[in-house]
């Protein structure tokens, strides 16, 4: 279907040895950021990114590319994210139904190989209460409307992040993952 050889790991050396990294995540920002720090994973991930290896953050895995989240606001010593993209991670306003759960449209802001073969406005599956707001809009790769337009995919060279779950988004999600596979293959 997607034909990527993958391992699930929490070892820094395995991450360092990888050709590319998919960084998924569901859960709380602060807890995950603390685990990344404690297990020495943050350093390994930052090296992968600095080396320009293809990197795909999914859901919380994308939010962790930013520095801090409003989710950690009530915590005395909030853990920091990877800080590779400048911007905020904000909670959806209480005027909306939160969490944002279900299938919503994703509109890429430009042609990019990650969205090759996907129609503008293809539906993907979302489940989240926080969204990212990059400071520089050149980091926004796609937008989604939920009461207002928010960034649903980010980019910085070979670093990508998606707020939705491609692994739960049917054929469109599988296409995006195989596009990511092509980006990896093109590195050789």
């Amino acid at each position: 279907m997607v034909s990527l050889k993958a391992i699930i790991t929490d070892h820094p050396h395995e991450i360092a040895a990888a050709k590319a990294v998919i960084f998924p995540g569901v859960g709380s920002f602060n807890y995950a950021a603390a685990v990344l720090r404690d297990k020495q994973l943050a350093k390994a991930l930052l090296e992968v990114i600095a080396d320009g290896k293809p990197f795909l953050g999914i859901c919380l895995g994308m939010q962790l590319l930013f520095s801090q989240s409003e989710e950690a606001d009530k915590i005395e010593e909030p853990a920091e994210g990877l800080k590779v993209i400048t911007g905020e991670v904000k909670r959806f306003p209480a005027t909306l139904r939160v969490p944002h759960v279900g299938w919503n449209k994703v509109n890429p802001v430009s042609n990019h190989p990650l969205f090759e073969g996907l129609t503008d406005g293809a539906y993907f599956y979302f489940t989240h209460s926080y969204y990212v707001k990059p400071e520089d809009n050149r980091h926004t790769l796609a937008l989604t409307n939920y009461g207002f337009s928010f960034t649903s995919a980010v980019i910085s060279n070979n670093l990508f992040g998606v707020q939705f779950h491609p692994e739960k988004s049917g054929p469109a999600g599988l296409r995006l993952l195989s596009n990511f596979g092509k980006i990896i293959a093109d590195q050789d």
């Binding site: 944002h100 759960v101 279900g102 299938w103 919503n104 449209k105 939920y146």
Partner: peptide, 8 residues
């Protein structure tokens, strides 16, 4: 806008 879901 969220799509209406059909769930078997």
């Amino acid at each position: 806008m969220l799509a209406k879901r059909i769930i078997p």
